[in-house]
């Protein structure tokens, strides 16, 4: 099995003839790639070592589909430099990105919740490294590691906040703000100023037609916040992009950072209008 060969810590000195240098190299790759993922990095060293035995470094390629809705999940993925979009489908073909997962997260959350079927399409939107683990192995490790459970429950909760914010954002914010938010979220995860992205692909992510994306991207380009050429997007002015994005970006980022700084502010501004309406309904009853 490739997994045992790749793990330098648990491979017994007997068995298939693997050269020391190969194993060492594989081990280095494994260690480097997994540390890239912050969920794995947060697990205590001893438990992490045990996890490593079941982790396999892989390269995820742009456009690769990891899961389709209704499909059984065969692997979970801990992205390093790669980026994975969770797309919810309607009417067979219309999609919307409801989650974006990079080094801060894990792809395969249903397994954390005791369910082995994906309800979304998981699509690689940024080529890069990841560590993967077979589903059965993951479920076993997950049961054994309290630290992993806590990490992933908390992460699941922030992912839910991302989905919720996306739902509201789609309702209220114009494409230009949403595009700016999406670019910032991508920028945070890939840690590179440039990424490849067609307008059509962005349309699927944002749930708008290609024309809408083109218009919004053009506006951001004119404001010199991004550069766009032949599908390559370059972030030129990150601060400007932050100003152009809707608040939804900060809200989700606060959750991921574990610092609910924005919340106090949000609480103060809670809809006076909604409260008044609820009162009026109450009077009727």
């Amino acid at each position: 099995m490739i997994e045992t060969v790749l793990n330098p810590l648990l491979v017994p000195p007997v068995g298939p003839p693997t050269t020391q240098s190969n194993r060492e190299r594989a081990g280095q790759v494994a260690r480097r790639a997994s540390i890239e993922n912050s969920r794995l990095a947060a697990v205590p060293r001893k438990e992490y070592r045990r996890l490593l035995a079941g982790l396999e470094p892989v390269t995820l390629t742009f456009g690769e589909v990891l899961y389709e809705p209704g499909e059984t999940i065969r692997h979970v993925y801990f992205p390093g430099s790669s980026l994975v979009s969770l797309l919810t489908l309607v009417d067979g073909h219309l999609t919307l990105e409801t989650g974006l997962i990079g080094r801060e997260g894990m792809v395969g959350i249903p397994l954390v919740l005791g369910h082995n079927v994906s309800s979304v399409r998981a699509l690689v939107q940024g080529t890069g490294t990841a560590m993967r683990m077979a589903a059965a192995r993951f479920s076993k490790e997950f049961r054994l590691s309290l630290a992993l459970q806590q990490e992933l429950y908390r992460y699941t909760h922030t992912l839910m906040a991302q989905i919720a914010q996306t739902a509201a954002c789609n309702r209220f914010h114009v494409v230009e703000m949403r595009l700016a938010r999406w670019l910032l979220m991508t920028h945070d995860r890939v840690k590179s100023d440039q990424f490849h992205m067609t307008h059509e692909f962005l349309g699927h992510m944002l749930g708008v037609r290609r024309v809408g994306v083109t218009k919004a991207a053009h506006a951001l380009q004119q404001r010199k916040l991004i550069g766009y050429s032949r599908g390559d997007i370059t972030v030129l002015d990150r601060r400007g992009l932050e100003a152009a994005a809707c608040q939804c970006y900060d809200v989700v980022k606060d959750m991921h950072d574990g610092a609910p700084a924005g919340h106090a502010v949000r609480k103060m501004r809670i809809s006076a209008c909604l409260t008044a309406q609820i009162r009026s309904v109450r009077r009727h009853t």
């Binding site: 009417d91 409801t98 739902a167 789609n170 749930g207």
Partner: peptide, 16 residues
């Protein structure tokens, strides 16, 4: 898990 599905579906419903 059921709640996550509901939230994601609501997001896409809002849009589409």
């Amino acid at each position: 898990q059921a709640l996550i599905t509901q939230m994601a579906q609501t997001a896409v419903c809002n849009r589409r």
